[in-house]
Design a protein around this nucleic acid. Sequence first.
DNA 1: GCATTGGCGTCGATCGGGGT
DNA 2: ACCCCGATCGACGCCAATGC
Length: 633
Amino acid sequence: MDAIVNKAVEELCIQSFKGGNSIPITDLWPKLKPYLSENGVVLCNNVKKAILSSLINIPGLEFETKDNDLVKCTAEECERMELKIVVPEHMLDNFTRIHEVEVSKSKLCKQELEALHLRKRVLQRIAIARANGITQCELTKEFGIKANNFFHIFKELEVLGLIVRHEAVVWTNKASNKGKLISKHTTTNMLYLSRYRKHLHSQQRLEIRGGVLMSDDLSHENSASCDVKSNGEDVHIKDYLPILREICNKLEKAKGKVIAISNIKKDLGYRDALGHKEWRKNILRRLTQAQVVEVTEEVQDWGNNRMSNGQNFPIDVGNTVNDTKMQIMDSSVRDLVPVKSSVTETISPRCQAYKAYSSHKLREDWAREQREQWILKMLEEEKFLIKPELQRRLENLEKGRHTSMDKKTLERSLKKLQQKGHCKCLDVFFPAVTNFYENRKKVVVLHPSIYELSPAMLVNIYDRIRSFERKVRKESFSQFEKGNALPIVHDMDRGQHRVEMDVQDALAKKSHRIRSMMPKLAQAKRLHIYLWEYVNNAHDSEDTSSSGKYRCDLKNNDNSCKLVDIGAAIEAMQLELFLQVSGSAPMHENMFEKCGDYLHLSNIPMKDYTPLRDTQSIQELSLLIVILQRFKV
DNA sequence: GCATTGGCGTCGATCGGGGT
DNA sequence: ACCCCGATCGACGCCAATGC
């Protein structure tokens, strides 16, 4: 009976949160009915009377009735006289537990009272959602408060232990005007009142899959991402533990407890772009973060000792270059306990017979020889070459031929040159720009005279790789802009509209960005011209390297950096230029007239000078310097 | 208030393997 | 040697959450 009464009180509280100051007893029964049936209780008049009697005994609950002697009334009589129940505020606060953090109200100022009231409303709204929970972004919209202002409240309530937050991914299918589905998703947090919390472990996350929203429904809201109301049926718990365990088990059974990642992915069906991503972001990351497995990438140098070690038969080196494997070491993996494991070395060269030469042997031999000559000439001049770039350059040189050079052909040529000692091929690793935890790798062809990669050399290599990639992307984008490669598929209705919209959108955004950047670039250019003159003059007259602490590496074409003290350079700036590049307004209209054209920042009076160097100006200047640094190629 | 972070989809390039 | 295709990868943009 206690449980039933608790349930009744819970219902009364939730109904109060929903705005009913007093709840008619006739409204309470239908809410209780499902719970009672679950427990095999039929809501007959006797049960009703028993529940009522218990409620009457709860101190604090108030009953609105015409008849004073409630205890003697039957259930029917109570219903007939429209009995209503009022839950007092302190009981509501008890339900959300906000009373635990409440301080004496008399001591609070007006703002503090408002803040407390807001927290109460938030808690009550979360309480209404009960075990279904409510997403953070949904709540943010309901309250009309910006997410970045609201976040602190959620965090505070979480720290106080009043609510629980779980990471959740929301998928929304939005219908465009033409009725096609566009899938969108966003990450947010699901909020529960502590009493309704879901007990999720670290390998579980919530996924909310919403229904279809027609675009008409969105007229009042621009962003569709959070518009799906999360009801219980849409929320799924995605549990990664079973799949992680399965992988651990496979590793346990594997020989040496090592499996090639490509094999295990194929085995478990992680294929295509999406599957691959899922593997990287949700499976491999979880395993490595839990330190349950270790991933090793083995790179075998091209034409290493293996090739010259008395083995006369050819080896298909291509298959042995890269092999990413994962390893598990300890049997305690089932608990996903951190385990340290050692690096393995497993190389499995595959033998393959050479195929007979074709009848075009002579012509091909000639082409290969010419190719090798080109490579050697480039190498002599440039000392190093990036393989993908080399491939492109050779393709351009061979444009006249009816066939195009295969990358494997190039590899063979490089291998041959390397064996003869005419070049060295090295894998160069460098950090990726995005947040991927792996380094990027490029094969670099080096002149044999280079024994080791100096830092300066590495910088040159990085810059070359970057400029090559920029060039490649610029080419593909200019094709795209000309409309050569607009991906419109006429036979397929699906997705067409969206692609066109995206292209227009992208172009509009791009041109807008260029427009808004132009003044900034003009400012940057002015600053650059000034600094360049400044640093050259300074070097002509005296050595500036000892004159200040804020320095900026301007240019190092020939490894000889010219350092400039930015602070001193700005001091020496003409006032007009300073105002232009920092975007500040002049102090007085007649400032220039009064002081002449050659006024420098360093010789204006202190009272005029100080307000000029405000935070805004410094920020502007810093931004320009960042822009200049990015231009440094 | 603005900047950064993190997760995800899209796009285009590269890689790897198999066929002729 | 050349061709083809699916798998894989990195850059980038978007957006909500988060940090300062």
